[in-house]
């Protein structure tokens, strides 16, 4: 799903919320439910709201996937730059590219940069845990949506290793670390596809 898709789903949620207000108003106008039973219209509206809530959660997943996808794409660009610079023995260019690559891989581990972290913090403050169950089981860090703890550690380890290469670049070392990144990335995308 693209960012445009995410926007569509958020728009749908707004429509559903409006439907809820209108639906509830209609039921009240009809004189209330039969004793002991929730009015069918309210159940239907609640179902509609449930669709919206679940859609928002899916949208969150897709948005975070998109953020990660953009970071991954940028990492690949920096990887190519690093490869070329190492091959050309251009120390300054390889240092820059490797540091940028390290930063990208770190951001994959932290599921976005610090600005995204601020949004995640807001959601947690509001009581929203995308994977409350997964957090309790130790699979996810608090508020994380796509990146598991295992994947996070793998990305962070790789980012540090790549960062260490910046001043002493090694082509084979870079390939080994990137292979780790690719493996972790593929696993995440498979689980969140």
């Amino acid at each position: 799903m693209t960012l445009r898709g995410a926007g569509r789903a958020l728009g749908s949620a707004t429509v559903f919320a409006a439907t809820l207000v209108v639906g509830a108003g209609a039921v009240l106008a009809q004189g209330g439910p039969a004793p002991g039973r929730t009015p069918a219209e309210m159940v239907a509206t609640y179902n509609t709201l449930a669709d919206a809530i679940l859609a928002v959660k899916n949208t969150e997943t897709n948005l975070v996937r998109t953020i990660l996808g953009a970071t991954y794409a940028h990492a690949r660009v920096e990887l190519e730059r690093a490869r070329k610079a190492i091959k050309a023995a251009d120390a300054k260019a390889s240092e820059t590219a490797l540091e940028n690559l390290a930063a990208d891989v770190a951001e994959m581990g932290t599921e976005g940069d610090s600005a995204v972290g601020a949004v995640r913090k807001r959601l947690l403050e509001g009581g929203h845990h995308h994977h409350a169950d997964g957090e309790a089981k130790g699979i996810y860090d608090e508020g994380y949506v796509v990146v598991t703890r295992v994947a996070k550690q793998s990305f962070l380890d790789a980012s540090k290793a790549i960062g260490q290469m910046a001043r002493a670049p090694k082509a084979d070392g870079l390939e080994a670390e990137w292979k780790e990144v690719e493996t972790t990335w593929a696993s995440l995308m498979k689980d969140n596809g």
Binding site: E99, A102, A103, V105, A106, E107, G109, T110, S114, G117, K121, D141, R149, K152, Q153, L156, S159, K160, I162, G163
Partner: peptide, 30 residues
């Protein structure tokens, strides 16, 4: 929150490099 390490780029500007330089989080990435 993750700690910051702002690296001085030598021209009066800084780049935040804490996470990948290994001093923003603990050994478990937290």
């Amino acid at each position: 929150d993750p700690n910051y390490l702002y690296r001085n780029e030598g021209n009066g500007t800084f780049r935040e490099v804490g996470v990948w330089s290994g001093c923003a989080l603990d050994a478990n990435g937290a």
